[in-house]
């Protein structure tokens, strides 16, 4: 979906998504890091379980909500990526259904 400009600067940063290792660059937001890694879906909605991905990249749509280092519902597009971040996708409706069962 996105590729890095050859002239773009930035230090490589490592992170995990649902336990799998990835890397991106310093200066990336968490949402940009995911998109740069080719990951367009970051959560399932709590209403229907529909897949969603980053949409506005400026903090207004709340589509890029992810769990970062154990804290849920963080706006990935507003949080700068840092080394070693543990990012998890949010499985809204499924998680809720599991707890009910």
């Amino acid at each position: 979906m996105f590729r890095r400009l050859p002239e773009a600067r930035g230090e490589p940063l490592n992170f995990t998504l649902d336990g799998k290792p990835f890397s991106a660059r310093s200066g990336d937001s968490v949402a940009a890091a995911l998109l740069a890694a080719g990951i367009e879906t970051c959560r399932a909605t709590p209403v229907s379980g529909a897949p969603r991905g980053p949409y506005c990249m400026m903090g207004v749509c709340f589509e890029c909500l992810v769990t970062i280092d154990g804290v849920g519902n963080r706006q990935g597009c507003l949080i700068p990526l840092s080394e070693g971040m543990r990012i998890e996708t949010q499985q809204g409706a499924r998680a809720i259904a599991q707890e009910v069962a």
Binding site: R3, R4, G10, D28, A32, Y55, M57
Partner: peptide, 25 residues
């Protein structure tokens, strides 16, 4: 418009400005 892979054009511009990422494919 809620499908992953659909974004605002401004969102893509933000990626270009902040991360040097260019729409691909």
């Amino acid at each position: 418009w809620t499908l992953p892979g659909v974004m605002t054009a401004g969102g893509a511009q933000t990626m270009l400005k902040a991360s040097g990422l260019v729409p691909d494919g």
